[in-house]
């Protein structure tokens, strides 16, 4: 179980998140929504330890991630697909996957297995292993960013606007992967701006405004609460 309790975090003197609480259960897709500048990406970074928490706890299966050095967070089972993909653009597809595997399973046989699994999940990457990541198409880059995060064999998968700027067929492919990961028992925490894209997909929606919790919707509350959700997002 993944739980955030009373998280306050920010950059230097600027506090962005104030006492944010959230939870994501295994086998569920939790969607984090909010207007631009609400603090969604900062929350993702705070979970990864890339933005230091001033107060509060970030717990994954009992471990307080906020108390760990940032580089130890992925080792505890957190895979991160950041906004804008942020691949190691000068490295090849194979090398990006290798970096992902580095924080994943330690045994060579498990690593090979994970790598093969990723290439099965994203066969197109298999054809591009020697190509530099920066030269891939947007959709392929998103596939690689997702594969790189999944190489860790995470318990919690963080996806920050993974469908941004992608063509419909790619959006559907990424959606399928998210569903597949949820069905495998991963806790998926997804940042998404488009309501239509998440209405069916989400098991839980959490809205933040100005760095604070605004409203939470459980699965049965999502459809009836659509108007309120739109009001929160101003659409």
């Amino acid at each position: 179980m993944f739980q955030i309790e009373g998280l306050t975090a920010g950059y230097g003197q600027a506090t962005i998140l104030r006492e944010v609480s959230l939870q994501a259960a295994p086998g569920e897709i939790t969607v984090l929504m909010g207007r631009n500048g609400a603090g969604k990406t900062t929350l993702m970074k705070a979970i990864m330890g890339l933005v230091r928490a001033e107060a509060g706890q970030v717990r994954l299966d009992g471990t307080d991630l906020a108390a760990l050095p940032p580089h130890q967070v992925p080792g505890h089972g957190v895979g991160y697909v950041p906004q804008g993909r942020r691949l190691f653009s000068e490295l090849t597809v194979a090398q990006n996957i290798e970096i992902g595997l580095g924080a994943g399973p330690k045994e060579a046989s498990k690593r090979r297995e994970t790598r093969d699994e990723m290439l099965e999940l994203f066969p197109r990457l298999g054809e591009r292993m020697g190509q530099r990541a920066g030269t891939l198409s947007g959709g392929e880059q998103q596939m690689l960013a997702t594969a790189r995060a999944l190489c860790l064999r995470p318990k919690l998968l963080l996806l920050d606007e993974p469908t941004e700027g992608l063509q419909p067929s790619m959006i559907e492919a990424i959606r399928q992967v998210m569903v597949q990961m949820r069905d495998r028992g991963l806790a998926v925490l997804l940042v998404e701006q488009r309501i239509d894209a998440v209405l069916e997909l989400a098991d839980r929606i959490s809205v933040i405004e100005m760095g604070r919790n605004a409203e939470d919707f459980t699965k049965p509350e999502i459809a009836p609460g659509e108007a309120r959700l739109r009001a929160h997002l101003g659409v």
Binding site: G49, F88, E90, I99, A103
Partner: peptide, 16 residues
């Protein structure tokens, strides 16, 4: 090289 290209992302993938 990964650290050179993006230190923050390197951290997010377990690189100290």
């Amino acid at each position: 090289r990964a650290t050179q290209l993006d230190g923050e992302m390197a951290t997010a993938f377990g690189i100290p």
